[in-house]
Computed example of a mutant assay.
Amino acid sequence: MCKWNSSAELTSIGSAHPGLPLRPCTLFLRLACLFLLFLTGTALGGCPNGLGHDPLHLLARGTNCSWTLERHTRSYNHLEGDVRLRRLYSANKFFLCIDKTGKVDGTRRKNYPDSLMEIRSVSVGVVAIKSVSTGLYLAMSKKGTLFGSARYNPSCKFKERIEENGYNTYASLRWKHGGRQMFVSLNGRGKPRRGHKARRRHPSTHFLPMLPT
C-alpha cells in the first residue's frame, strides 16, 4: 500500500530534484499507486470537504481517505427488511409458539403450525417475530412477560445476536430490568420465563432458527 502524507513527497515525483531523474521502476510504482488511489476514490464516492477524485490534489493536501472505506464496510442497511421463515428451537428442546389467544409457549411438536415464525429485520441487528398461523407478534411487557400482540409496536422489537455456541439470543429492545437486558426464554418444561430471570448464557435463552420442513 502506498501513502503520501505530505506535499513534500509528492514533489519528489517532479521538481524536488530536477537534476536527478527517477528510475523507471520507481516512477512506474508511483504512477501505479496514484492510479489505484484514483480508482479507490471513484469507487467509494470520493472524499470529504469537496476534494473530489483528483489523486494529485489529494496527495498535495496530504489527505487520508481511509475513513471512506471504513464507512462503507460498516454499512449494513441492505439487511433491513430481510424476512426469514423459521422455527425457533430452544436449547431446552422446545419450539417457541404463539397461539391464537396470544399465549406464548413451547412445544415439542416439530411441525406445529403455531411455531412457524416470520422473522423480519426491522433495523440493523433488530428483528420482529410473527407467528405465521396466528398473525400475532412476539412481544415482551415491561415486567418481562412474553405475549402475542395483534399490532406491531416497540415492545415487539428484539435484538438478535449470534452467540459463541452458534445459538441466537433475543433481547427486548425496549425494556430492561435494573439496567440488564431481558431475554426471550423457555424453561425446562417449555414454559416462558420472565425476561429479568434469564441471562444471556442460560441455555433457556438460546434458540436455533430452523428452516421449516
Score class of each variant (00 low, 15 high):
residue 90 S to W: 03
residue 102 G to T: 06
residue 112 Y to F: 13
residue 89 Y to A: 03
residue 137 Y to H: 15
residue 142 K to V: 04
residue 95 F to L: 11
residue 155 S to D: 12
residue 121 S to H: 12
residue 82 D to V: 14
residue 90 S to F: 02
residue 54 D to K: 07
residue 74 R to W: 09
residue 164 E to V: 00
residue 155 S to N: 09
residue 129 I to Q: 03
residue 59 L to V: 14
residue 71 R to H: 10
residue 89 Y to R: 10
residue 68 T to H: 11
residue 99 D to K: 05
residue 93 K to C: 14
residue 102 G to N: 03
residue 168 N to W: 06
residue 75 S to P: 00
residue 113 P to C: 01
residue 142 K to N: 06
residue 61 R to N: 09
residue 112 Y to E: 11
residue 61 R to E: 14
residue 146 L to V: 07
residue 134 T to P: 02
residue 109 R to S: 10
residue 95 F to Y: 15
residue 151 R to Q: 13
residue 139 A to F: 01
residue 110 K to E: 13
residue 56 L to T: 11
residue 110 K to A: 14
residue 83 V to W: 03
residue 57 H to K: 14
residue 146 L to T: 09
residue 54 D to Y: 06
residue 127 V to G: 00
residue 80 E to F: 11
residue 69 L to I: 13
residue 132 V to R: 11
residue 169 T to F: 01
residue 72 H to T: 13
residue 149 S to T: 04
residue 143 K to S: 09
residue 75 S to G: 02
residue 103 K to L: 01
residue 70 E to K: 15
residue 142 K to M: 08
residue 112 Y to Q: 08
residue 133 S to E: 09
residue 138 L to C: 01
residue 60 A to T: 04
residue 133 S to P: 02
residue 98 I to H: 03
residue 114 D to I: 01
residue 60 A to H: 09
residue 87 R to Q: 07
residue 119 I to R: 06
residue 130 K to L: 12
residue 70 E to R: 15
residue 81 G to Y: 06
residue 115 S to L: 05
residue 78 H to V: 13
residue 63 T to K: 12
residue 59 L to F: 07
residue 143 K to P: 00
residue 125 G to S: 10
residue 139 A to W: 00
residue 108 R to M: 10
residue 70 E to S: 14
residue 79 L to I: 14
residue 153 N to C: 12
residue 148 G to T: 02
residue 105 D to L: 07
residue 62 G to P: 04
residue 135 G to Y: 03
residue 151 R to W: 02
residue 67 W to T: 13
residue 118 E to K: 10
residue 126 V to G: 00
residue 115 S to Q: 03
residue 156 C to I: 07
residue 72 H to Q: 15
residue 142 K to Y: 06
residue 62 G to V: 04
residue 94 F to N: 03
residue 87 R to N: 05
residue 165 N to D: 15
residue 77 N to H: 09
residue 96 L to T: 07
residue 83 V to N: 01
residue 78 H to A: 13
residue 136 L to E: 04
residue 78 H to L: 10
residue 163 E to N: 08
residue 136 L to W: 02
residue 110 K to H: 10
residue 137 Y to P: 06
residue 152 Y to G: 03
residue 144 G to N: 01
residue 111 N to T: 10
residue 164 E to Y: 08
residue 59 L to T: 11
residue 87 R to I: 01
residue 147 F to C: 04
residue 147 F to I: 02
residue 89 Y to D: 01
residue 76 Y to G: 04
residue 159 K to S: 13
residue 60 A to M: 03
residue 119 I to E: 10
residue 106 G to N: 09
residue 93 K to L: 12
residue 161 R to Q: 12
residue 162 I to A: 08
residue 93 K to Y: 11
residue 165 N to C: 09
residue 55 P to D: 07
residue 58 L to T: 12
residue 151 R to C: 04
residue 92 N to Q: 15
residue 137 Y to D: 04
residue 153 N to V: 00
residue 118 E to G: 01
residue 113 P to E: 06
residue 115 S to V: 01
residue 93 K to V: 06
residue 86 R to M: 08
residue 57 H to Y: 15
residue 135 G to F: 05
residue 86 R to P: 00
residue 56 L to H: 10
residue 121 S to G: 01
residue 143 K to D: 09
residue 113 P to H: 05
residue 102 G to C: 03
residue 56 L to I: 15
